[in-house]
């Protein structure tokens, strides 16, 4: 064990992590993710984007109320980094309760604002969940 003298010396004060507290909170307690087999979750539509060769992939599954076209439930899975996990967690919260068209209007910037910012080189990671949601909505529209 190494004593954390850095914290004691105050070098870390205020910025203990490269990510904001909200990002960290969503990373540690992600909302709406699906553990285990995705085939056991009865969704109305799904979208998968990204490529594991590039280091990230995202699957988004949605349930939709047929009459109101509102998203009633969202579940996601990912092979991705902390930014991808936190931003998709945030997106899943933002999307729930919105109509499909409203959900499509959620921007990457809105997710970033919700999380209180992301490091610049991590911006593309947050786009992944966003693209997966758009793919799921497109899948739903094709089916209905």
């Amino acid at each position: 064990m190494v004593e954390n003298k850095t914290a004691a010396n105050g070098f870390l004060a205020g910025t203990p992590w490269v990510y904001t507290e909200t990002v960290k909170e969503h990373f540690l307690n992600p909302r709406n993710f699906l553990m285990g087999n995705e085939n056991e979750y009865q969704c109305d539509a799904k979208g998968i984007v990204g490529n594991p060769i590039c280091g990230d992939q995202m699957l988004m599954m949605i349930k939709v109320d047929e009459k109101s076209k509102k998203i009633t439930d969202v579940k996601w899975k990912t092979y991705g980094c902390a930014s991808a996990i936190a931003s998709t967690s945030a997106l899943s919260e933002l999307a729930k309760g919105r109509t499909l068209d409203e959900a499509l209007k959620i921007t990457a910037e809105e997710i970033e604002d919700y999380l209180g910012g992301l490091p610049k080189h991590k911006f593309h990671c947050s786009v992944l969940g966003h693209e997966a949601l758009a793919a799921a909505i497109s899948d739903y529209k094709k089916k209905h």
Binding site: N4, W17, K24, F27, L28, C54, G55, D56, T78, Y79, G80, C81, A82, S83, A84, I85, K122, C125
Partner: peptide
């Protein structure tokens, strides 16, 4: 199937365990 940057950051955040990763992220 487990992404390296996420493992690294969970180790840091949950266990104060400091490591490196070969992940692109």
């Amino acid at each position: 199937a487990a992404e390296g940057e996420s493992i690294q950051l969970y180790l840091d955040a949950e266990g104060e365990i400091i490591t490196s990763t070969g992940s692109a992220c």
